[in-house]
Design a protein around this nucleic acid. Sequence first.
DNA 1: CTAGCATGTAAGTAATTACTTGCATGAAAG
DNA 2: CTTTCATGCAAGTAATTACTTACATGCTAG
Lengths: 193, 193
Amino acid sequence: MSSKGTAEKIIEAALHLVSEKGYTAATTKAIAELAGVNEVTIFRHFGNKRGILKAIIEQFSYYPLLQQELNKNVTWDLETDLLNFSIKHFNFLMSIKDFVMIGFKEAMQFPEINEEIANIPLHIKTELIHYFQEMHDRGKIREIDMEAAALSLIAINFGHFMSRARLGTFVSNMPNEELLKTSVSIFSRGLAP
Amino acid sequence: MSSKGTAEKIIEAALHLVSEKGYTAATTKAIAELAGVNEVTIFRHFGNKRGILKAIIEQFSYYPLLQQELNKNVTWDLETDLLNFSIKHFNFLMSIKDFVMIGFKEAMQFPEINEEIANIPLHIKTELIHYFQEMHDRGKIREIDMEAAALSLIAINFGHFMSRARLGTFVSNMPNEELLKTSVSIFSRGLAP
DNA sequence: CTAGCATGTAAGTAATTACTTGCATGAAAG
DNA sequence: CTTTCATGCAAGTAATTACTTACATGCTAG
C-alpha cells in the first residue's frame, strides 16, 4: 500500500469511472471515493485531473501486447489462422475495454487516446494484408481486394466486441467462441478460391 | 422562425454538442450559443437540461425508417440482397450517427437512448434470420447457425460504420460502396452451399 | 391599434467542481 | 528515538453551471 499502490488504485478508479460516465462527469471526488483514497491525494500524485489520464496514456502501451501474439502459431490453414486471429483480436479488445470506451467518449478532449485506439486497426490491417497476400501466393485465397478483406475481418471482430462490451447478452447470449467460430467459418470460406 | 423553429434549432445544437463532447460537457450556454438562441429560451422550452434530450428521444423514432426499407426489393439472389441490405444498414446508421454516439456515451445517464440503439441490431437480427431461413429452404444457403450468421453481417456493417463515423479516412480511404461490395462478396460466398 | 406571445437582456442564486493550504498522524528507515 | 514521507482531515476559494426572476422588445392575429 505504498505510493505505487495508491497511484494504481486512483488510475484504476479513474479508468472505470471515466469509461462509464465520461471525463467531465467523473469527478475527482468520485474517483477518490472509488479508489478509497482522500481527494487531495489525487492532486498530490497527478497535479491535476488531466494528469490522471495523462498517466494512463503513458503507462499503457497496448498494441505491442497484441502484435507479438499475432505472428505466433501461423499454420497457413486459412480457417485455423483466422479463428486464432479473431479470438486474439476479440480478447485483446475486451482486455482494454475501458481504454477503448474512453477513446470513443473523449476523442475531443484526449486526442492522444483516440489516436492510440485508431492506430490499432491500422496496424492490424497492414499485417492482415501481408498474410492474405502470402496466402494468395500459396493459392489458398481467391483474387480479391486484400485491403477490403482485411478491413472486413477487423470490422466483424470489432462489431462483435462492441456488441458484447456494450450490450452484453441483450442482442444474443451465444457464447463468444461459438459466434467467432461461425463468423470465421463464413469469412474464410468466402475467401477461398 | 416561430416557436417550432426555435425548439428545433436547440435540439439540433444539443444533438451535435452532446454527441461530440458528452452530456455533462455540453453546457446549456454552449448549446444556446450554437443554436443562436438565448440561454433562457432553452429553459422556457424544455424546462431543464434533461428536457432537451427527452424531447430528442420522443421526437425521433428511428427504427421504422429502416424497417420499411429493408423488405423492399428482395430478389432472392443472395449477393444482391445482402449488398442492398448492407448499404441501407450502413447509410441508416450514418444518418443517425449523432444519436448513436450519444447512446454510446450516455448509456448511464440516458438508458432510454441506449435501449433504443440496442434494439436496432435486435430487430435486424430477427429479420435477417427469417431471410436466411427462407434462403436455406430455397437451397441457396448452406447449413449454418443462422443467428451467428445474422450477427456477423450486422457486426461487419456496424464495424465499417464505426470506422468511418469515428475515424474517417484514417484507417482507409476506400469508398464506402466499394468496401461494402467486397465485404458482401466475401460474406455471401461464405454462406453459399 | 392593441393584446398576446415568443424571445432577448440583465442580474442573480445555490450548488458543484477542480484545486489549495495548513496541520495532524502513522508507519517505515536510518 | 527521530526524521521523513505518504496520506488523511478540515476548511476554504475561485470558477463554472443549471436554473430563476423581472422587465423590455418586437411580431402577429384579431
